[in-house]
Simulated assay, not measured.
Amino acid sequence: MKGVVNIEDLRKLAKKRLPKIAYDFIEGGTDDEVGLGTNEQAFRQARIVPRYLVDVSVRDQSTTIFGRTYSSPIGIAPTGLAGLFRRGADLMLAEAARDANVPFIMSGSSTGSIEDLAKLAPDHGWYQLYSSKDEAISEDLIKRTADAGLKTLVFTVDVPEGSNRERNIRNGWGRPLKLSWATKLEALEHPAWMLEWLRHGTPYFSNWAKYAGPNASADKVADLVAYQNRAPMTWKHVERFRSIFKGNFVLKGIMHPDDAIRAHSLGVDGIMVSNHGARQLDNAPSPLHVLPAINEAVGDKMTVMFDGGIRRGLDAIIALCMGAKFVFQGRPTLYGVTAGGVQGAKTALGIFRREVDISMAQMGATRISDLGPHYLMWKDEEDLRRNRR
Rank of each mutant, 00 (worst) to 15 (best):
D300K: 14
K236L: 12
E296F: 00
V56L: 06
G341Q: 10
A218Q: 13
D223N: 15
R354Q: 12
R385P: 00
D383L: 05
E381P: 00
G323I: 06
A319D: 02
R388Y: 08
Y23S: 08
M322N: 14
A187L: 06
E115M: 09
M302L: 12
E115D: 11
L291H: 03
V238M: 06
A278V: 01
L153K: 02
G112A: 14
S71H: 13
V54W: 00
V337S: 01
A182I: 10
G201D: 09
L195R: 15
L195I: 14
W126H: 01
L251R: 06
R312W: 08
G336L: 07
S62Y: 02
T202A: 11
W126A: 01
F326V: 11
T183N: 12
T333R: 03
H264T: 12
T338M: 05
G201V: 08
K15H: 12
A77W: 02
R331I: 04
R170Y: 05
K12D: 13
E239P: 05
K2P: 04
T366K: 08
G364F: 04
L179V: 09
K210F: 00
G108N: 09
I48W: 05
Y127V: 13
K119Q: 13
G344I: 12
K252D: 06
V58A: 15
T69Q: 10
L93W: 02
T234P: 08
R367M: 12
G37I: 06
A97E: 07
V337C: 02
A209L: 02
G201I: 08
L384N: 09
P50D: 05
A121Y: 03
S71V: 00
E135L: 11
D282L: 03
V157S: 02
